[in-house]
């Protein structure tokens, strides 16, 4: 089942750039890791519910009251690029 992993595709999904010279080595390691998962297919899990959380708890609800203050000047001190209170990014084309 462990298909040859498409390094370019998973890199794109993860917004990572993998250089042409690295693709081979990276692919080899990724395929070795994915190879570990082959065993999963053989395990009988019929009727077993997927377990997303360790404890069977339910979502707690927060009262709808404003508790946060304006902190933009403080938090924007650590931002790479801001102007007029806005975070700047290369032009977004729609």
């Amino acid at each position: 089942m462990s298909d040859h992993i498409d390094v370019h595709k998973v890199a794109r999904l993860g917004a990572l750039a993998i250089g042409a010279d690295e693709v081979g080595a990276v692919g080899q390691k990724l395929n070795a890791i994915v190879g570990l998962f082959d065993d999963l297919a053989a395990i009988n899990t019929d009727g077993i519910e997927p377990m997303a959380h360790p404890l069977d708890q339910v979502q707690r609800l927060r009262v709808d009251v404003v508790i946060e203050k304006d902190i933009h000047q403080y938090v924007q001190q650590i931002a790479p690029r801001v102007e007029a209170g806005l975070y700047l990014v290369p032009k977004v084309i729609e």
Partner: peptide
């Protein structure tokens, strides 16, 4: 990249969901 792979279309059931079932076992 491994995480993106196991969640991606076509692999989610075989890897991610299966692993969550094994987790319960």
């Amino acid at each position: 990249m491994v995480g993106a792979y196991v969640l991606s279309a076509g692999y989610y059931d075989a890897y991610y969901l299966k692993a969550q079932r094994v987790r319960r076992l």
